[in-house]
């Protein structure tokens, strides 16, 4: 058995556009080469325009998403406000680092729009919470090598919401088609200032 990151498979990507951000994931859950489910979303909502994608070991995708649901709910009750993407990023970082010597095997990707400044925000993390602040795109999962290639080739600055949707969808679908452990449909979120659009991509089912 290889790395815990490669057992279940899965891919996630986030991109910045003009006054919008996008985050997308595949839907596969597998055990090595065997596919268990083709409806296993990896993106979770934590505030009106803030989403967190989790790839890696499926059990930790479940555990970590449950953990942040708890933490963000407690934050919202205590502070009577929604958590901002930047604050959530630091919460994710400190929570993952807490498990420095027994980490969760996940590679989170965060995308959102800061409601105070109106500015898009994306970032990625390694499994022990080191933040990667990127201005363009973040990739993670078993198809991350492929995603780096497709994103590098397709992404350009200041894409509008519709163009960003096309770009991220093509980047993800092309990447997962070249990865045996990802695919089986995809979920895409396009986040604008006061609107979020969720789309389901069928993708190849083989």
């Amino acid at each position: 058995m290889g790395s815990p990151f490669d057992i279940n498979g899965g891919a996630c990507v986030a991109m910045v556009g003009k006054d919008c951000v996008a985050i997308a994931c595949d839907l596969r859950l597998g055990m090595q080469a065997l596919t268990i489910s083709n409806n296993f979303p990896k993106i979770f909502n934590f505030a009106p325009s803030t989403y967190l994608g989790l790839t890696g070991l499926a059990t930790d995708v479940n555990t970590v998403s449950d953990l942040f649901r708890y933490k963000v709910n407690m934050y919202r009750l205590r502070e009577e406000r929604h958590i901002s993407p930047q604050t959530l990023a630091n919460l994710v970082s400190s929570s993952l680092y807490e498990k420095r010597f027994g980490p969760f095997f996940v590679s989170p990707v965060l995308a959102g729009i800061n409601q105070t400044t109106g500015k898009p925000f994306i970032c990625g993390f390694d499994s022990i919470g080191c933040i990667d602040f990127a201005k363009d795109f973040i990739v993670s999962g078993t198809a991350s090598d492929q995603l780096f290639g497709t994103c590098e080739g397709l992404w350009e600055p200041d894409l509008g919401a519709e163009d960003l949707f096309e770009t991220i969808s093509q980047a993800l679908l092309s990447a997962v088609d070249r990865d045996a452990l990802s695919g089986w449909g995809a979920q895409v979120y396009i986040i604008e200032k006061d609107k979020v659009t969720q789309r389901l991509l069928k993708g190849r089912q083989d």
Binding site: I7, N8, L29, M31, I36, S37, N39, F40, L57, A58, T59, N62, T63
Partner: peptide, 15 residues
């Protein structure tokens, strides 16, 4: 629901 020994949980039509 399909649950393996790693505690991965998935809602499935058959398993």
């Amino acid at each position: 629901y399909w649950i393996d020994y790693l505690a991965s949980l998935a809602s499935v039509p058959y398993a």
